[in-house]
Design a protein around this nucleic acid. Structure first.
Lengths: 263, 263
DNA sequence: CAGTGGTCTAGACCACACT
DNA sequence: GTGTGGTCTAGACCACTGC
């Protein structure tokens, strides 16, 4: 089933290959195609921002109809892994050229006008290599004591410190990341991860609470210790649901709010 | 274009009917079908929980192919307005039988086990009719002074008060809603809105902040006034993006957290 | 113009649920 | 078995982009 040399006619045979399993493990053709495309994305055959082959080409390559490829691509586009552009092609999604920068940042100014406040000012407080504590290791799928990179930074809007973030990255994929590298780069951090380290963040999960800052946090955000803050803990994942970043943010919510849509 | 008596062959003519508009206003057939199905949902032709006609039936009714109906239904299912069940049919989504109750409530126990904590205990503090203030009116698309219903309640988990909610509903659609009615009903409030008032909440938007409670709020949640709380302001919409509920919640986040997924 | 994704159709067959 | 949604194909044509 992996090689996918089956044509339409031996689909049934191909699908039924799990023999007498109690779980039939039926998987539609387009799901298999989706998996193959995913592998190519993961393996770097097509890089972020690039176009993937046309639907016709992929259909020929995998020996299926265009409609089947289309359905696979539809799902990948729905997952924000690909972007379709009529007349031009289908492209590997990226955090860089995304019209809305900061795709994962849900903090909005209260007036709603994200343009008027302009881009965030970023200040790297520190960037150091250390050994993972138990909870960091667990979140990143590492072992306690493995090398991790820790970054602390402050984001300001209109010169007002608004976000204090600590983030932890697994050491090996991010070899060579320094405070200077981070400072020089303009644009979303996740875009830098893509271009410099080949790590693409695909989805993330956030746990949100209300907390009070400790003395150091209060000082960095220039608030007093009685100011309630939003604590946003995020784990970001690459392909294959591999955790690649843990982020703990403190958001000041007197002029901004965390915006969420429910469906 | 509305009557949709066109067969496949005059599709082109039908689509091009906007004549020489600068905005061609091209709308695919399946989008038009989607709109028609939406109208039927809105008009109550099929009620929450019921099955809608089969794809073949709808195809015949609208004089299009099954594939076109399928694509329309696919989008409505993606929007959580319909639920497909293979072998059985396509059903109007509802807040009642939803396997996960509280579809819009993102607060989770920290241990993640939503089963073990059991259902929430609900306590209605008050339920009264009053005139809308300016901000309430604006959020609900009413005029200041229009009649609105205000409900205040506390939700407890494991006998610990955890959520304090105020909610406002437009007066006319919810005529006859009383504290008693609310107390007697077991199950999500949105399910009651569906069955008793024919109002189905389709989507919602939340603005989240960290705040400190005032004295009354602190007392109702049995916390001291220095305990930071999550302030969750929600506007819920019915069909046609009509706002139908404003809700202001205070969440205690020492044993729970607001969980969000980013894509 | 050619090439891309987008729409629509028609027909075949599969998986699932109920009766 | 019958009816439902789900998959797959093949072919035609439309809309958008850029040469």
């Amino acid at each position: 089933m992996n090689t996918l040399t089956n044509t339409a006619n031996d689909l049934a045979a191909s699908i039924a290959d799990s023999a007498s399993n109690s779980t039939p493990a039926f998987s539609p053709l387009y799901q298999q195609i989706k998996g193959l495309i995913l592998q190519s994305l993961q393996g770097g055959e097509w890089r972020p921002g690039e176009a993937i082959p046309s639907e016709m080409d992929l259909a020929a390559r995998y020996r299926v109809s265009q409609g089947t490829v289309r359905k696979a691509i539809d799902e990948l586009a729905a997952d924000n892994l690909l972007v379709r552009r009529q007349g031009k092609g289908t492209f590997v999604a990226t955090h860089a050229e995304h019209h809305v920068q900061y795709r994962f940042l849900k903090l909005m100014p209260d007036n709603g006008d994200i343009q008027s406040e302009g881009p965030a000012q970023r200040q790297i407080i520190e960037c150091k290599r250390l050994r993972a504590s138990a909870d960091i290791a667990r979140a990143l799928g590492l072992r306690s004591g493995d090398s991790v990179l820790q970054v602390r930074r402050v984001l300001s809007f209109a010169n007002r410190p608004t976000i204090l973030e600590d983030l932890w990255l697994p050491g090996s994929p991010f070899k060579g990341l320094t405070a200077q590298r981070l400072s020089q780069y303009s644009g979303p951090m996740y875009a830098l991860f893509e271009t410099e380290f080949g790590v693409r963040m695909v989805r993330a999960e956030e746990h949100i609470r209300a907390v009070l800052p400790d003395a150091e946090q209060a000082q960095l955000l220039a608030v007093n210790a009685a100011t309630p803050l939003l604590s946003v803990e995020r784990v970001a994942y690459t392909y294959k649901d591999t955790p690649m970043e843990l982020r703990r943010g403190l958001y000041l919510t007197d002029t901004h709010h965390y915006r969420n849509e429910l469906n």
